[in-house]
Amino acid sequence: MDTLCIVAGEGTLPFSVARNARNQGLAVYVVGFEGTTDPSLEQHVDGLCWIKLGQLGKLISYFKNHEVTRAVFIGRIAHKVVFTDLKLDFKMLQLAMKLKDWRTDSILRLIADEITANGIEVIDSTTFIPELLPKPGILTRCKPDKKQQEDIHFGFYIAKRLAGLDVGQTVVVRKKSVCALEAIEGTNKAILRGGELGKKDVVVVKVSKPNQDMRFDVPVIGEHTIDVLKQANAAVLAIEAYKTILIEPEKVIAKADSYNIALVSADSSAFEFSKYETNGRGV
């Protein structure tokens, strides 16, 4: 039997992956992080091992002991964890010496390469939840007006460049002016800061990175995000089609409609950004 191991962060997505994988006949094990992963996940899988962030050697040993053939990273782990008192084991210390920086992609790709070198395939994190990836379109009954559509277009231009630097994936704009850029503080705090500066009817855009590695750090939107948008007096949330995970889509869409917030899923490849360029450089 093919054996999958879920490297689980916080939230409900690890549960969805576990359920769908088991329905496909896979044995499913979990590696959870103390203080982050929901302990009740253990009731839905074949086994769970608790580790601390930085214990890469223990992670790989668990994979091998359970003959894991594929691993999937799913669930949020806050980026600011790099500033906590991490206890790196010897295996992780060896890898850390190879890091050129401590950006998310740099860390995760190095870890994925080490796991792959030990014979375990790290797969696309959306493999078992394709139904949570929205197609292009306006998902809510509430629709953006013409000026808001222009802000979506401008927001995608800015957000894609921000994401390309692996700094953040969310921008808040109003009247084609940038109110906030996400950094290590995370999406929700960036939205609130942008809402405070933009005053009302801000447009929030959340995108994937250019050449997004779908194995990890795929953008995620849930009901709590919509609550934050309401608090920030946002009028629109635009996300990237096919590359954004909507947790419990029906509930997210219903809540957005109840707050009169338009939820738009857009294909960024359909946008033309040349009008924002100056002498071949970004604004």
Rank of each mutant, 00 (worst) to 15 (best):
D2M: 13
I6D: 04
V7M: 11
A8Q: 11
A8F: 09
E10V: 00
F15W: 11
S16G: 00
V17A: 07
Q24I: 01
A27N: 14
A27Q: 15
Y29F: 15
V30T: 13
V31W: 02
G32C: 06
G35V: 09
D38H: 13
S40K: 10
S40Y: 05
E42D: 08
V45F: 09
D46L: 03
K52Y: 09
K52D: 06
L53Q: 09
L59S: 03
K64I: 11
E67R: 15
E67V: 05
R70D: 10
R70P: 00
A71N: 05
V72F: 01
R76G: 15
R76P: 00
I77K: 00
H79L: 02
K80L: 08
K80M: 05
T84P: 00
D85E: 15
F90W: 04
Q94V: 04
A96E: 04
K98S: 13
L99G: 00
W102L: 13
T104F: 02
D105R: 12
I107N: 04
R109I: 06
D113S: 14
E114R: 14
G119K: 10
D124E: 13
D124I: 01
T126F: 03
F128M: 05
I129C: 07
E131M: 11
E131T: 11
L132N: 14
K135D: 14
G137D: 09
Q149K: 14
H153A: 07
F154V: 12
F156P: 03
A159H: 04
K160F: 01
L162K: 01
A163I: 06
G164Y: 09
L165N: 04
L165W: 03
Q169V: 06
V173S: 09
G186A: 06
K189L: 14
I191C: 03
V205T: 11
K206W: 00
S208T: 10
K209S: 15
N211A: 14
R215N: 02
F216S: 09
D217P: 11
V220C: 08
V220G: 01
D227P: 00
Q231H: 06
V236I: 14
I239G: 01
K243F: 02
K243A: 11
I247Y: 00
E248L: 02
E250C: 03
K251Q: 15
S258I: 09
S258M: 05
I261H: 04
I261W: 09
A262E: 12
S265Q: 08
A266S: 14
S268D: 11
S269H: 12
A270K: 15
A270V: 10
F271V: 08
F273S: 11
Y276I: 01
T278M: 05
N279G: 03
G280A: 07
